[in-house]
């Protein structure tokens, strides 16, 4: 019962926050609303018993990525509303209409609403999946396909660091 209430409260909160992010004119408020959505999503991860991912979600998304966004918004002084005018035309209405069509198409595509229940999996067995231990053992298990992507990710991050520094540098 508690999870049902938690789900609906968090669902409403996350949808409201993400709509607020799109609607508001002020980038700082957009960023704040998005942080709210991210924290709701982290709470969903905990409801789905993925505790490690939930912590990482907050650390990486809310703690690092969004702080970077805020930093850039403040650095470029885009925080005041009106620093960038939104185009006033039919476009938002058309975009919203198309978006709703997209959502309806997603929902009608079938498997979203009625998933086949996997045979022989009981909720009790879901529990240890999300702990740091389970994730670590699976991530570094040479018999599973995750070790190579993990190493590749480290190179990707290195390239991104170098790329960001070169991009943001004033003069080479």
């Amino acid at each position: 019962m508690a999870t049902v209430i938690a789900f609906w409260v968090l669902a409403i909160l996350s949808v409201v926050a993400s709509i607020a992010m799109v609607v508001t004119k002020n980038p700082v408020r957009s960023a704040l609303a998005l942080v709210g959505t991210f924290i709701c999503v982290a709470a969903f991860y905990i409801l789905l018993s993925a505790q490690f991912i939930a912590a990482v979600q907050v650390i990486v998304y809310a703690g690092a990525i969004m702080v970077l966004f805020l930093f850039v918004i403040m650095l470029l002084n885009l925080g005041s509303p009106g620093a960038l005018r939104e185009r006033g035309s039919l476009q938002p209405i058309i975009a919203t209409g198309l978006g709703i069509c997209f959502l309806i198409a997603l929902l009608l595509s079938g498997s979203l609403l009625s998933l086949p229940l996997p045979a022989g999996v009981r909720p009790a067995e879901y529990e240890p999946l999300g702990t740091v231990r389970a994730i670590g053992i699976n991530l570094y298990d040479p018999n599973q396909p995750w070790l190579f992507p993990f190493e590749a990710t480290s190179i990707l991050l290195l390239v991104a660091v170098i790329g960001a520094i070169i991009m943001a540098k004033r003069k080479v």
Partner: peptide, 22 residues
């Protein structure tokens, strides 16, 4: 007594910057 104790503290303290920045 959660199994991600250390990560929890890191996560919360990474949120603390928002108060100051905002």
């Amino acid at each position: 007594d959660v199994n991600i104790g250390v990560l929890y503290i890191l996560a919360i303290s990474s949120l603390q910057v928002y108060g100051i920045v905002l």
